[in-house]
Write a protein that binds this DNA or RNA. Structure first.
Lengths: 240, 240
DNA sequence: CGAGTTCTTGATAACCGTCAATAAAAGTGG
DNA sequence: CCACTTTTATTGACGGTTATCAAGAACTCG
């Protein structure tokens, strides 16, 4: 599919691009790749990672400790840049794994430098997207460091809900939610068992329900309050 | 002081720059500011934050919850870029506070766009520095999510030790360590009391000692092992 | 239907948080 | 320089949150 006709461009979350910019992006694209759930997109320690955007599906970034413990750092949704850190730094400290079946636009890592020389607007956007991802990780770190189990779950659900909503993936307060409890636990910094118990406690309290791999937010107000969010959320906006 | 004569340029951790690049940086610099310990460098929610580099001293980034809990996200050492996220996104989700007396080089935020247009090598380096900071936060998130109290302290000490060492600030396994126990606790996601107890347990176990605001690593091997670090650490290197 | 995975639930223990009181250190004013 | 106050660090007792162990239930998939 040509980038000019990319359906992601139509979503409100995406900035308008000039034809020149889109053509340049198209010229960097070397492949459109489809991977099954659980596939490695970037392997921990990989030195020659390409740069991707996630065209469809969900993925996550994670880091391992030598004894096997795993921390999920953040989740990636359609439109997100994948592997920027691994492309700029010479070796990935993290891995990236497909959570669902995914489609990736593969870009030539070697031409990233060319992009910085010739397309300042796109390089600015790359830096901006990097900062936005960092801001997400900041919030996860605050969650894991300061919130208790129930608050963490509420905060994660709200965060994913808002991101899905911005992509038009929410209908009737309900959206696809493909995380296993083990993945939830690794993202929240909790044990599997405690995650399961807390998760079902919040379900029974009427915050949300799940069925068929989808999550429905039944009580957004209560969930936000439990997540200890500020009333006024700061939406990231570009400077230019 | 003119940027051409900046002493930070001589440190091995810093990349060579052409005279052109340094002149451009000089032209963006609007002030050299000195602030006392505890001063706000960027206020949470601030919308017009300038861009800084930390010329001397220590600082930290933090995030607050509505009920007052605080998570310290990462520490900033001399040479670090300060406020990139706040400059690119239009409002800071975090605050930045001086930990010691600091000296800041203040750069015009409005000319950041100009930099991206005219200086691709510098914009690439900005993106690179942003990714490196994200990588640090990844590691803190993994620490807080997966390591227990002792492991977290060991990992933090090693991480700061290595960063100070790269700046030539370590002499005889000893370096300035200006954190209070409250700040330690907020960075580690632990209570003040538990931090104090674990800290003194590790001191008594001979991992390190403190006196006069300095920390001495007495047993680097044991400390690294307790921190559950990989044998082979991946040093971030630039692609170009 | 059977085998594997994922999820749930209860019992127990470890880790960590809170409360409270003391000690040490740092800042302040006479 | 010495009292005085304020902040920061230490230590013990106790309680709550979370981890671990274990077993069974529910779900998936061939």
């Amino acid at each position: 599919m040509p980038c000019l006709a990319c359906p992601l461009r139509l979503k409100p979350a995406f900035k308008d691009k000039t034809d020149d910019e889109v053509r340049f992006i198209q010229s960097m694209k070397v492949e459109h790749r489809r991977l099954p759930p659980g596939a490695d997109i970037i392997h921990p320690g990989q030195e020659d990672a390409e740069l991707y955007t996630l065209f469809a599906g969900w993925a996550f970034r994670y880091q391992l400790l030598p004894d096997g413990r795993r921390q999920i750092l953040n989740f990636l949704l359609p439109g997100d840049l994948v592997g920027l850190q691994a492309s700029l730094l010479s070796a990935a400290q993290h891995g990236i794994e497909a959570l669902t079946e995914v489609e990736l636009c593969v870009f030539s890592r070697k031409r990233v430098w060319d992009l910085f020389v010739r397309m300042p607007s796109l390089s600015y956007e790359i830096a901006w997207l990097g900062s936005r991802e960092e801001s997400l990780i900041d919030q996860n770190l605050t969650s894991v460091g300061q919130r208790n189990a129930g608050e963490r779950i509420a905060a994660l659900v709200i965060s994913l809900y808002r991101r899905a909503d911005a992509l038009g993936l929410v209908a009737d307060n309900s959206f696809r939610f493909p995380l296993s409890q083990q993945q939830l636990a690794d993202a929240l910094g909790l044990s599997l068992v405690h995650t399961s118990k807390t998760w079902s406690r919040l379900r029974k309290a009427g915050l949300f329900s799940t069925s068929d791999g989808r999550l429905t937010l039944l009580n957004p107000r209560l969930t936000s309050r439990m997540a200890l969010l500020y009333e006024r959320e700061l939406e990231p906006r570009p400077l230019i």
